[in-house]
């Protein structure tokens, strides 16, 4: 266990060229999670290379914007990797405005959907994504949907509400006003 922890820390430090500190937590079942903050966004690429070298798997990416982070003028993003049952989370702070982060798709193919999803929910630009198009939300909806007030019926593509009925009527030509 100690060897594993040291190996992960050393590999990350070596690849990123910075001293990486990981907080390891073990729960009552003996399952371990690792928590690490990288000091700058650019380090995520070498850190992810280190994880790939350890035969890790990208499990999930979580972008989020808390009130406390907003007050500090930052936003956050967490990359969760699986190392044979141990989840390692690498957290990064990004600027509130003009946040940019390198794509992990060259290293982890499944980063594709994760990156496309958080790009439509938060104001974060992914650099180097092979096809940075919408994943779930319609192109007519402005990006960064989680950072703006949007009518719920619009957010859910108007799939089951008055909004859908109005769209149908407009397309069938029964609502001249909406067609104009």
């Amino acid at each position: 266990m100690i060897d594993f922890k040291e190996k992960v820390s050393e590999t990350l430090s070596l690849r990123t060229g910075a001293e990486v500190t990981i907080e390891w937590r073990i729960n009552i079942k003996g399952v371990m999670t690792g928590w690490c903050r990288l000091r700058e966004a650019a380090l995520i690429l070498p850190a992810a290379e280190a994880v790939a070298g350890l035969e890790g798997r990208l499990s999930m990416i979580t972008a989020y914007l808390s009130d406390s982070a907003k007050q500090k003028g930052v936003r956050e993003i967490a990359f969760h990797f699986d190392l044979d049952g141990t989840t390692l989370t690498l957290g990064i702070e990004l600027p509130l405005e003009g946040a940019r982060i390198p794509s992990l798709t060259p290293l982890f193919r499944n980063a594709d959907w994760h990156e496309r999803e958080f790009m439509e929910l938060y104001d974060i630009q992914v650099i180097g994504h092979p096809a940075p198009r919408r994943l779930f939300l319609d192109r007519s909806i402005d990006p960064a949907a989680f950072e703006r007030l949007i009518p719920y019926s619009t957010f859910s593509n108007g799939a089951n509400s008055k909004a859908l009925w109005e769209k149908v009527m407009a397309r069938s030509g029964n609502n001249r006003k909406e067609l104009q």
């Binding site: 979580t62 808390s66 967490a78 969760h80």
Partner: peptide
């Protein structure tokens, strides 16, 4: 997988799942 982030209130700051 679920990721939960809290601030001490009774509502999540972020709850993400894959």
């Amino acid at each position: 997988i679920y990721y939960l982030n809290t601030d001490g209130t009774d509502m999540p700051v972020r709850l993400k799942w894959r």
